[in-house]
Nucleic acid binder design. Structure first.
Length: 503
RNA sequence: CGGGGCGUAGCUCAGCUUGGUAGAGCGCUCGGUUUGGGUCCGAGAGGUCGUCGGUUCGAAUCCGGCCGCCCCGACCA
């Protein structure tokens, strides 16, 4: 690709309404442009990077025996009414009405659509297990998009769905995804941790999240260096000391959804003064869709933390409703827990029969009995992964792409006196199957060098009068910066062998 | 949805306090210059000052509504 033909230009300064470094670089280097809050266009370089990431994902999902499909962005509301999520999820679900007055939703995820497919196609245990995946657009009308692609409203996700006859089958597919996701992140060049997680709006019985540790993250993790315990704060447990000083009460209105009806109950939570309330845990105990703080209303339910001693007031229910904090004691090994901030780049859920049960996706087993299909769902935020890669792989000059996900592996710069040689090398590299970004623009050297640093392709080739006098082409590795001069005659071999060893 | 901030040329911003002919740098066009780290000189194009309304002889500037964007919180892949 010739840079003179690229639609976008690089930006000398970051747009003012941006704060996160990785996002600023994606904008400045011309990978993405913002269209609306949480909505982005992917320009050529961004799209190329996404394609590299997606190719790795397809390889790993195919290796699991997955079959690629594609489900729609627009769904009939009836599917979401059947699962109950039409009622459970509030404004985050995009709803629209077609010209005939039929209610539709925008895909927030695809459990319903896949369960609907399963109930049409799967009849017998002989057809199981199954694994289907797709890479598709999601719309979640997030109340607060932020940090560019880290938290957007429209985003791309790799999501896969497993169908099994029993729990043992689900366990196997869940574990297979757990392992495959680590391989995907390793190949993309993003370090991640897997932690125990809340099932959130997906429902089900067990979930893990894959976390990239970074201060720009919005999730808080609790980590134990003693035994390796790792959990999202939403579900993290900790050892509560025997003697606790004082009690506090916190009052909430819990919104419950029963079928199509919404109900509210006023709940007073009671816990030690030293603890913080964990609203995720509280919500689960109450089976509430939402909690909102309130004050001084007649309490319907008294909920007491299981670590509290010496509470003499009313008790309707006892449960763990306290949030683990930095320095709390690990339940497993007694060591102190530490906290870290992270971005959730993927999650995997054991759905069980959450969707197959409500939507009637059943099969007949060998005993001729109808059984709900046992499901799992698994997702990686592709565009969020792009954001995390930009955040992780950068320096003062710009982005520093790993070879495997770089939009192009090679950046060829033609400077004065090197134009003809550069043009020839460009053609030779293309013929050798090397994708090249070729800076053929009529710009000064400084502009080209700065843009090359900003875009951050792995290998920079500079051809100029000076380099030719020195013996050929200057080759610089973006990560690390070491330079060499390669003869023009053997440059293509030099580049292909470097790339082969770097992959 | 609560709190805060912002909206002036493609980008970054000044001008608003104290109302009176709309500015700078970068970018863009043309000419020259320079050519290995975002050259330099000259000429030029480009803006209904987010939008609607109000106050006023007169509004980018004061007042109000609305829209949009960002940050914090609630929330979230």
């Amino acid at each position: 690709m010739k840079m003179s033909r690229l639609l976008n230009e690089t930006l000398r300064e970051a747009p003012s309404a941006t704060e996160v470094a990785g996002h600023q670089l994606l904008l400045r280097a011309g990978f993405v442009r913002q269209v609306a809050a949480g909505v982005f266009s992917y320009l050529h370089l961004g799209q190329r990077t996404l394609q590299k990431i997606e190719a790795i994902m397809r390889q790993e999902m195919d290796a699991l025996g997955g079959q690629e499909i594609k489900m729609p962005l627009v769904h009939p509301a009836a599917l979401w009414q059947a699962s109950g999520r039409w009622y459970e999820i509030d404004a985050e679900l995009g709803r629209l009405v077609d010209r005939n007055g039929r209610s539709l939703t925008l895909a927030l995820s695809h459990e319903e659509t896949l369960a609907d497919l399963a109930r049409q196609e799967i009849h017998s245990y002989r057809q199981l297990p199954q694994l289907a995946y797709h890479i598709q657009t999601k719309w979640r009308d997030d109340p607060r998009p932020r940090a560019g692609l880290v938290r957007s409203r429209e985003f791309t996700m790799l999501d896969s769905y497993s169908l099994d006859a029993d729990e043992a089958g689900l366990d196997g597919q869940y574990q297979a995804h757990y392992d495959a996701y680590f391989r995907i992140f390793a190949r993309c060049g993003l370090p991640v941790l897997a932690v125990q997680a809340d099932v959130g709006i997906m429902g089900g019985t067990l979930a893990h999240e894959f976390m990239y540790l970074t201060p720009i993250g919005e999730d808080t993790l609790l980590l134990c260096d003693g035994c390796g315990y790792r959990a999202n704060r939403q579900v993290a447990t900790f050892h509560k000391p025997e003697s606790q000083q004082g009690t506090q009460t916190v009052q909430f209105v819990a919104e419950l959804v029963v079928g199509e009806e919404k109900r509210e109950r006023v709940v007073t939570a009671v816990l030690s003064q030293n603890f913080q309330i964990n609203e995720t845990k509280l919500g689960h105990v109450l089976n509430a869709q939402r909690l909102r703080p309130t004050a001084e209303q007649a309490t319907d339910l008294w909920l007491v933390d299981d670590g509290l001693t010496g509470w003499s007031g009313q008790v309707d229910k006892v449960a763990d409703i306290a949030a683990a904090q930095e320095g709390d004691t690990c339940t497993n090994c007694g060591q102190p827990l530490r906290t870290a901030r992270a971005v959730e780049v993927a999650n995997i859920f054991k759905l069980g029969t959450r969707y197959s049960g409500t939507m009637g996706a059943t099969f007949v087993n060998a005993q001729d009995e109808a059984r709900p299909i046992v499901m799992g769902s698994y997702g990686i935020g592709v565009t969020r992964l792009l954001a995390c890669l930009a955040e992780h792989h950068r320096d003062e000059a710009g982005l520093v792409w790993p070879v495997r996900v770089a939009p192009y592996p090679v950046h060829l710069l033609a400077l004065r006196g090197g134009e003809e040689t550069a043009e020839s090398l460009y053609q030779q590299l293309l013929q050798a199957g090397v994708d090249v970004l070729y800076d053929d623009r009529d710009e000064r050297p400084g502009v080209k060098f700065n843009d090359a640093g900003l875009i951050g392709l792995p290998l920079r080739l500079t051809v100029s009068q000076r380099s030719l006098v020195m013996g050929g082409v200057e080759v610089q590795v973006r990560a690390g910066g070491e330079t060499a001069v390669a003869p023009v005659a053997t440059l293509v071999t030099y580049v292909t062998s470097w790339l082969a060893s770097a992959r």
